[in-house]
Amino acid sequence: MNFDDYRGIWVYLEVKDGKIAPVSLELLGAGRKLADKRGTELAGVLIGSNVKPLASTAFVYGADVVYVYDDPIFEHYRTEPYMRALHDCCQKHKPEVLLYGATPTGKDLASAIATDLPTGLTADTTMLDIEEDTGLLLASRPAFGGNIMATILCKKYRPQMATVRPKVMKALSPQPNRTGKIVEEHISLREEEMRTKVLEVVRETTKKVRIDEADIVVAGGKGMGSKEGFQLIHQLADALGGAVGASRDVVEAGWIDHHHQVGQTGVTVTPKIYFAIGISGAIQHVVGMQNSELIIAINKDPNAPIFQSCHYGIVGDALEIVPLLIERIKEELPN
């Protein structure tokens, strides 16, 4: 393997609801920095049906080149056809680094391709850097339930690949006039040869605010005492116009469903205000909210670890403090 043949930082551009997924735009932001440091170009790979028009978004967010595979066979994500396309692209154009969002789709695709290329794949990365002269990617990730951080290298294989957690990297602010080069690619795949078929896609849309998009998240833990006590969390969220989050133990107790779980095995959130109420502050919880702008903790135990991860804390009984808080907010914000 001649490393000099491998050039460029690539991002797999995941398409969701007819748009480039937010995590892919974040990765273009992170990738731009790596590409500039390494003095190379930033490319995106776009696979789907009727996706070519989306390339312009990638340019606006930092890409220099977009490789496009546009074909009806790619209507739904399926490992086999997507993998064949991306594999084809890697063999033709040989990237030095290839990044994916650590979403169900990104992880599925990356794991399959890593086996076929073959190459190393770092999972759930939260920090990225590159060595300017060698191009060695330094990908760091939490492991052992967030108890440690590890830096993973892939010295002897190219491309170097990593999946990167959503909401950790920052997208660049869009530059509407920025353009780039579209490279249209084709690969002949026949539907009859595909071994899987998507029969139906079911969206479980909730009317409530999605917690990973909300500006205010009010999260409650086991300290709320019971499912009834946890209703205070809903009431506070309603009063503030925010979304409800929860610790894993609350989800496991059946007080609320899994979509609300914040943390390593739940969602990562970065709201403007995050409330952690009756949450102890286990590392697995904290990794999912630590990048929030303002973190407020309420806990009756002054030694609870959450007070190490917040900006402001109140030591006290949540069942007393939260009702007072709701009352005062209703006075201040009558609607």
Partner: peptide, 24 residues
């Protein structure tokens, strides 16, 4: 194994916030 764990460290501990004082 193409990947190598080159360095392992404890995640940085946040500094901790300010506790609000007074009655509830």
């Amino acid at each position: 194994s193409p990947t190598i764990v080159s360095k392992v460290w404890a995640p940085p501990k946040p500094e901790g916030g300010q506790l609000l004082e007074g009655t509830a």
